[in-house]
């Protein structure tokens, strides 16, 4: 296994108390595999990724427990300089907002080339040639001329391509993409997702795709982990989860999106709001919003039940949820 996150806990110490952002997350990614982590804002999907990358702000953040195994070594036990070697070379991240992730006062060529200067000890001139090569690879037209331009001179889709080029530069074995297409228009989104999937196949990388968009996930993911209030509530191969969700939250999410192919009746809406992370309800965190909640849901935290070999669901009533459709 390329990456294994085991029982990870992350907390943030805030004025209102301790916000439990990640509460025992387990997931794994193999080479060439795409794992989609799905969740709404505040579900802990990005925080988990930041912990894996080692870019969590500490303080206020704190990893309160767990292991992150990357190629069988626990990243949390490494010294900062060892960690730094892995970051960029072995794993890289693509962020949502390309404009604010790029340095506005450096040309894109300098930013792309910097990777080679720092990690590979190349000269500036060679690094620049490498930068052009990378820009070609992510299909930015006229790469030779545009290598000297600044980020603001590129469109949103092109900037996201530069981010992808930067992440790919040192051919890492794992890429974490945090909402890579959320800020883009649909037609551009399709181009960028295609490019990402193609490069992943070429380099046989593991890809963690963090998103809130159930549509994007369906197109590219192999398996899905659905997060809610800092826990994974359901994991499954992509086909199964859409056909028959085994957790009421997943089911609610799927039903609440309007569909392109039909003019709906009233939309199903999950009532209420996601919980405040400083005051997660006892028992199952989803119980105040769940149509199936019983007394046991308010008292006992559901473990990740084994639905079948590849599927897990953190619902006391996963059987009923599966059957109810």
């Amino acid at each position: 296994m390329l990456l294994e996150v085991r029982d990870l806990y992350v907390e943030f110490h805030t004025r209102e108390g301790v916000a439990k952002a990640v509460n025992g997350v387990n997931y794994s990614v193999a080479e060439g595999e795409t794992l989609a982590v799905l969740g709404e804002s505040g579900s802990g999907k990005s925080v988990t990724a930041q912990a894996v990358m080692g870019i969590l702000d500490m303080p206020p953040g704190k990893i309160a427990g767990g292991e992150i195994l990357f190629k069988d070594q626990d990243l949390l036990k490494l010294r900062p300089d060892e960690r730094r070697k892995i970051r960029g070379q072995e794993m890289a991240m693509i962020f949502q907002d390309a404009l604010s992730s790029l340095n506005p006062v450096l040309t894109v060529g300098e930013q792309l080339g910097e990777m080679f200067v720092v990690h590979r000890g190349m000269s500036r001139k060679d690094a620049k040639a490498k930068a052009v090569e990378l820009m070609d690879r992510v299909r930015i037209p006229a790469a030779k001329e545009r290598v000297g331009q600044y980020p603001h001179q590129f469109s949103g889709g092109m900037r996201q391509r530069i981010m992808i080029a930067m992440a790919m530069a040192l051919e890492p074995s794992l890429i974490i993409a945090d909402e890579p297409t959320t800020a883009l228009d649909v037609t551009v989104q399709a181009q960028v997702m295609d490019l990402l999937a193609e490069l992943q196949r070429e380099l046989n990388m593991g890809l963690i795709l963090i998103t809130h968009d159930l549509g994007v996930v369906a197109d590219v993911a192999d398996k899905i982990a659905v997060m809610y209030a800092g826990r994974i509530v359901e994991t499954a191969p992509v086909h199964e989860i859409y056909k028959a969700p085994a957790h009421p939250y997943t089911k609610g999410l799927l039903q609440s999106i309007p569909r392109l192919d039909q003019k709906g009746r009233e939309l199903y809406a999950i009532k209420g709001l996601p919980p405040n992370l400083t005051r997660i309800p006892p028992g199952c965190a989803f119980n105040p919003r769940c149509p199936m909640a019983q007394d046991v849901c308010r008292s006992d935290v559901p473990p990740l039940y084994e639905v079948d070999e590849q599927r897990r669901s953190a619902c006391h009533f996963w059987k009923e949820t599966l059957d109810a459709r």
Binding site: Q189, D213, G215, V217, A218, D219, I257, L260
Partner: peptide, 9 residues
């Protein structure tokens, strides 16, 4: 180009 929330699509 709209992603459809259905892998069979």
């Amino acid at each position: 180009a709209v992603p459809v929330p259905d892998p069979t699509a």
